[in-house]
Every structure is written in structure tokens, then in C-alpha cells.
Amino acid sequence: MTTPTILLPGDAVPAEALPSATSAPLRLGPGTRLFHETKYPSSPHTVTATHAGLLSTDAKRNTVSVLSFPNRRYIPTVNDLVIAQVQRSSQDYHHCILTPHAPLAVLGQLAFEGATKKTRPAFKPGDLVYARVLSVGVGAGTEVELTCVNPATGKADPGGLGPLQGGMVFDVSTGLAARLMKASTSGVVLLDELGAKLEKTGGFEIAIGRNGKVWVDCSGGGELAIRITVAIGRCLREMDEKDLTPKEQRKLVTRMLREMHVDV
């Protein structure tokens, strides 16, 4: 088994650990930054870590990122997907909460697919929105800006960006949020197992925010939907508290659905 690589802020990503694909440019994921190094002309660029965490590479997508440790405070990074709560609205912006300890982020009134002054979504304080971090600014006093469209296409890419209606939100650590979003490479089978078990009940929708928020909405309604939603939330909480193997995750799903009297 390969020993995981742990990086601290400012550490350079080892060159031998970078994906070796030559047909596509290297993509930098969360927790990484490209620096221009003038001391070593033979290696003019260095990928460094912006926070402490585990090095993660995806050879298929030619991507490198640093997965944060479970209890790390969320720091917005461009292109992060987040679940924001609208605190208030002004003429041009919705002012949103990403985390309780951080300044409000701004979301443009027209930053939605096909939005015009007449068709833009109307939010009330407390409403939720699934958005992407567009910019974080530089220096003190700068605001984090969010968007619900791809700036290049004007489309809600990936699908699901925009208002989140109904459902429930569960708080998880930023570390678990990152693992859930990289389930295929981080040993997480929890969501796939839940999807397979709950398929005949209509399944569920889920949105994962890098700011440690998970939104879950079950199809249909009534008491069964509530029990399923609570079961998913309890699975997430126990997964967050314990370092479960894939086999243990599958057992957790079976046990939690049984305890919540969900017939699968």
C-alpha cells in the first residue's frame, strides 16, 4: 500500500506525484496553487499546497488537489461548489452565509441561467442556493463572489446549481465534504450504497458543498421521506466521526435504514 503524502501550507507537490498525462494540461484542484519559481530555471513552475492535507491525484482527469483534514475551517477557493444561505438581498446582490465565522459572500441577482430582471429567482432570508465560488479577491476587505452559471457558457454547469427547495441540510466536516465529492478516489461508497438501497423508494437528491454542508431531498413526501432523510443524515454523521472502510460503510447503511424502519 502506498504511503499517503501529507503536505503543509507552502510545501511543494513532489514532481513524481503529479499525473503524467501529456495530452491535457494539468488541472489544479482545491488546496493547490501554481507558483513561478525564478531560482530554478529548469523547473520554472511549482505546484504548492495552500493548506494542510493529503495529496490526491486523478490521472484520468489529470488533476492534483490537497484534501483537507476533517476539522479544518473552510477557506473559499475559486471553483468550489458550496451551499450558501441567503441572509439578505440588495438591489444587485444576494448576501449569503457560507460559514458562521466568515464574512458574507455576494451572489449577483442575475447570476443564474437565463435570469433577467423579470425572471430572476426571488429569495427570502434563510433560503438555500447551490453555487460556485467565482472569485475570492485579494487582500483584507475583499468579498467572495458566487455564481450559479458557468461564466464561459452562461449555463448552470454542472446541473443543479441554483435554488435548493425543500429537503434538509446536514453539517459535516470540510474533510468529509471533500471526500464525498471525490468518492471514486477517496474510498467512499456510502452514497452509492444508499442510492442502490433506496432506488425502489424513488431515490433522493443530494448537493454537497465544500463548506461542510450537505443538502438531501427525498422524492415523494410524507413520513417515509422524512425517515429516509434522517437516516441519510445519521449515516453522514457517523461516517464523519469514524474512519470507516468501504465494507463498514455498507454495514452502516444497512443498519441505519433498519433502525429508521425503511423497508428496502
Rank of each mutant, 00 (worst) to 15 (best):
T229E: 01
V47N: 05
I208L: 03
Y40N: 15
V216D: 05
S43W: 01
T32A: 01
A49M: 10
F170V: 05
T119L: 05
D192H: 08
E259V: 09
G202E: 06
N79E: 14
L236T: 12
F123L: 09
T2S: 10
S219A: 13
L164D: 05
L190I: 13
L26R: 01
D157G: 07
P158C: 00
L18E: 03
L81C: 08
I208A: 03
H94A: 07
Y74N: 06
L198W: 03
R27D: 04
F112S: 08
A231K: 09
G203I: 07
V189L: 06
D192S: 14
E16K: 11
P14H: 13
S135R: 02
L180W: 06
D240Y: 05
T2Q: 06
P100E: 14
L190K: 07
P121V: 02
T77D: 13
L134K: 11
S23R: 11
N62A: 06
T153M: 12
L8E: 07
A102E: 10
S219W: 12
H101K: 05
Q249N: 10
V82I: 15
S135Q: 04
H95S: 07
P151W: 00
L98V: 00
S42T: 14
L161N: 11
R237W: 01
D11G: 11
Y93L: 07
V216A: 12
G166T: 02
I83D: 08
V136W: 00
A111I: 03
K124F: 05
P103M: 13
H261Y: 11
R61F: 07
T245N: 04
E199G: 14
M1H: 08
